[in-house]
Each structure stands twice: as structure tokens, then as C-alpha cells.
Design a binder for these strands. Structure first.
Lengths: 204, 204
DNA sequence: GTCTATAAATCGATAGAC
DNA sequence: GTCTATCGATTTATAGAC
């Protein structure tokens, strides 16, 4: 026997990860429609014919990545939510973690850009992206933290949903512009954090 | 003579506007790569062959729209800058105007989404989009307003460029998510305005 | 498991009739 | 000025050799 069955499985698993990793990089830079299978193959250092040995189509690769992106986001949010700290500091930690990762390969930042592309390209309805097997949406997880912060007076009053929308949009926008090279470095996270700031006392 | 020369010019001008209007709608919903010429033709209610009577290529239509978008943005910013009001209120007016227009056809909101797509798709380098015949970039125009606001104590201290980056990203992100249907309504503009808010006095 | 050659489909762009 | 028919290039996806 030239190769053990076990080794083959290992290769298979390895290749799949390699393809997904390369595909993520290509997709966030060119978008789904403009990304060619050959681009992904080149990035992964293999022939494009081999791609179809591991995935049925370009869409399947994309769908798999979007799933990973949602799971990864939920994971990060779940971590900060479970942390023992004030609600406002949970948000601060989340922003810091995301900002720091943007620009690093295979990070949560890349996943955020992919989700942005998935949502705006109109390929996936928003529900399909966020709603998975009845589990809580990343979005709602944040709304809950915001409400806690508002109750404690750490976060400005007003519709928590709108607050999260603005927060998310800014992060997605910044991550996308960073990856595209439109902006060179991420701004100070504290700027964004100010959207949570309760109204200042009137200056007397 | 069945038709006057003048009437032909009128038709030509009319058709071009019609095509650009339809193309804008298609491009912001599907992106450049996924948008088909036939999509635009259908939206405009004409055959796709006729498109090439008015434009040389899909790229030319897109490029024309991006130019319009930049010009339109500059126009809006120029208006608020010229207005006789406090710097912070200039920003407030700008946000209000943009937020209100998002979701309306052929508005500045559509143009913002197009610029976002143009920047993130990597088709155009950021310079090509913002830099035009030596005139001031929309971005720099805002930095100037911010500096004035900081000098007057109306706007938080810190790098004005980062402030504008965060501001722009949030607007672009919100506009994109609104057009894609990810969010149903635009949030309260005052949430975003808080990123300008100077540090509140310590609650005593 | 991996590659190359090829089929099949899509789409941008053109030509020519009306 | 407008439409339909067609070309040509690109790309997804498959088949078969090694």
C-alpha cells in the first residue's frame, strides 16, 4: 500500500482548510461574483480542477465560509458576554478585539468583511445569514448587552436595536474599507465607543 | 424629414439618463461584477443591444456613475460647509440629509452605496475615486469642518482624520445595509452624532 | 489524489435588418 | 433610433490520463 487510509483523510482535511482559507482571502478582496475559481486555486497553489474534488461549486465554498463567519462572530460575542465585567467594558473589549484582528489573515476581521459582502450583495437574505438552527443571532446577543448597560446607566438611553445597528454598520464599514486599502489603519476604538456615551451634563 | 435633429438629441439625452438611472439601481443591489447588461436593459425597458448605442461598455457606465457619485457627494458637503452655522451643526445637517435620502431612488444615498461598492470591490484605487482634476477630496472637506469644530470645543479632540474615517464608514455601512434590506429603517442620526461629542464632565 | 484537456454555459460586445 | 441574431471571450464544471 502506497499510502495509508489515514494519511489520505489527513490530506483531504488539510486541502479543504487550505481551499477555504484561500477562498476567504479572494472573496473579501474581489467579492463573490468577481472571484474566479482559478483565483482561489492559484492562491491555494493547486489546479482549479482539483477544487471540484473537494467542493461541488463556487457557491458551496462561499456558503461554507459564510457559515464559518457567523459561527465565529457568535463565538467572539459569546466570549465577551460571558466575561465578568461591566456591560460597557464588554463592548469595549469586543471592539478592541475586532479592530485588532482586522488586517490579520484568517481572523474575525476577515469574517466580518465577508458577512458584509454576503449581506450587501443580495445573495443571501439577512435571515439566512444570521439565523441558524434556532440559535440566537449575533445581533440579538449584543442588544441584550446594550440593555444591561442602559439599565446600569453606562450606555445612552434610546432604542438598543438602533444602537447596535449603528455599531455594527460602523464596524463592518471600517473593516471593509481597511481590507480594501481605502484606509490604512483602523481608527482609535474610543471614537466608536462614544456612540454609547450617555448625554453629557450641560456645561455650566 | 420624419424627425428633427433636435428631437433626436433630446431622445439621446433622455435615454442616457434613463440608462444611468437604471444602471445605478442594478449596480447598488448586485455589485459591478454580478450586474448584467441585460439586467440594466430590462430595468430601463429596452433591448440590451441598444445599450451599446449609448455606451461603449459596462465599465464606462459604471465609471460615469462613480464620477457622478463623487461629484454629488462633494456638492452636498460643499453646501453644508458654505452654510452659515456652527461646525457641529454642519455635520448634523449633513447626516440628516444623507440619512433622509437613503432609500429614495436616485438620491445621494444611492451614490454613497455605489462609492462603497467601488472602493471595496477593488476595481478603483481610492485615489481614482476621490481625486479628480486636482479638486479637493470630499474626505478632506470634512476634515476641515471637524478641525473648526474642535477649535471651537464643539467636537471631541483627537485625530480629525480618524474621526472622519469612523464617521464615513458608519454612514457607508448603514447606507449599504439599508439598501440591501438588512436593516429596515435608518437609526436615529443623533446616535452617530455622539462620536463627535466631547468627553462629558465627570459626574459629580 | 492530482493534473490537463475539454465540454457547456454565460455574457459582453458587434453586425445588420427595419 | 431600435431590435434581433450572432460572434467571441471568459469561466464554471466535467472527463479522463497519470
Amino acid at each position: 500500500m502506497p499510502r495509508s487510509e489515514e494519511a489520505n483523510i489527513h490530506i483531504k482535511d488539510d486541502r479543504q482548510k487550505q481551499i477555504l482559507s484561500s477562498a476567504l482571502k479572494v472573496f473579501i478582496h474581489k467579492g463573490f461574483a468577481a472571484a474566479k475559481i482559478s483565483d482561489i486555486a492559484t492562491e491555494a497553489g493547486m489546479s482549479y480542477g482539483l477544487m471540484y474534488h473537494y467542493f461541488q461549486s463556487k457557491e458551496e465554498i462561499y456558503a461554507e465560509l459564510v457559515r464559518d463567519a457567523v459561527d465565529s462572530s457568535k463565538c467572539v460575542i459569546e466570549q465577551v458576554r460571558a466575561d465578568d465585567m461591566e456591560p460597557i467594558d464588554k463592548m469595549r473589549t469586543l471592539v478592541a478585539r475586532i479592530f485588532k484582528s482586522v488586517g490579520q489573515d484568517q481572523s474575525i476581521g476577515y469574517y466580518f468583511v465577508l458577512m458584509m459582502e454576503a449581506m450587501t450583495s443580495g445573495m443571501y437574505p439577512a435571515q439566512a445569514i444570521e439565523h441558524r438552527h434556532g440559535s440566537e443571532r449575533p445581533f440579538d446577543m449584543l442588544v441584550y448587552v446594550i440593555k444591561q448597560g442602559q439599565h446600569k446607566g453606562q450606555i445612552a438611553q434610546g432604542d438598543p436595536v438602533q444602537l447596535v445597528q449603528t455599531f455594527f454598520s460602523a464596524i463592518l464599514g471600517l473593516a471593509s474599507l481597511k481590507v480594501s486599502g481605502t484606509i490604512e489603519t483602523m481608527p482609535d476604538p474610543e471614537i466608536l465607543m462614544r456612540i454609547f456615551q450617555p448625554a453629557s451634563l450641560t456645561t455650566t
